[in-house]
């Protein structure tokens, strides 16, 4: 029998990271780095914490984590600079 914690207590915080939701995607957001103005609105609105924050000082644009991005398209819809677009997921 697998060892399970009594009472179904989960003792490893954030262990959901082991569950990669990227495979759910049918469309994926793709960033045109040149257009990213580091505003981080997409980062703030992503329901899946699947966007790494941009760093304006370092001129580092946001980065999408495709391991978890479910392809909802909110980032594309909300980007004020049209820096993101949805493309067909390659299978």
């Amino acid at each position: 029998m697998d060892k399970v914690n009594i009472g179904a207590v989960i003792t490893t915080p954030g262990s959901a990271l082991n569950y990669k939701t990227g495979s759910w995607r049918t469309l994926k957001p793709v960033l045109d780095e040149a257009k990213c103005k580091f505003c981080n609105i997409c980062w703030q609105l992503c329901p899946d914490s699947a966007i790494e924050q941009a760093d304006a000082k370092a001129k580092k644009p946001i980065k999408i984590d495709y391991d978890y991005c479910k392809g909802c398209g909110i980032c594309v819809q909300e980007c004020p600079f049209n820096a993101l677009e949805m493309v067909e997921e390659e299978k």
Binding site: G7, V9, I10, P13
Partner: peptide
């Protein structure tokens, strides 16, 4: 930090 009262699937 721990999670109490988790969701028990048929696997567990």
């Amino acid at each position: 930090p721990m999670t109490f009262g988790s969701f028990g699937t048929p696997a567990h």
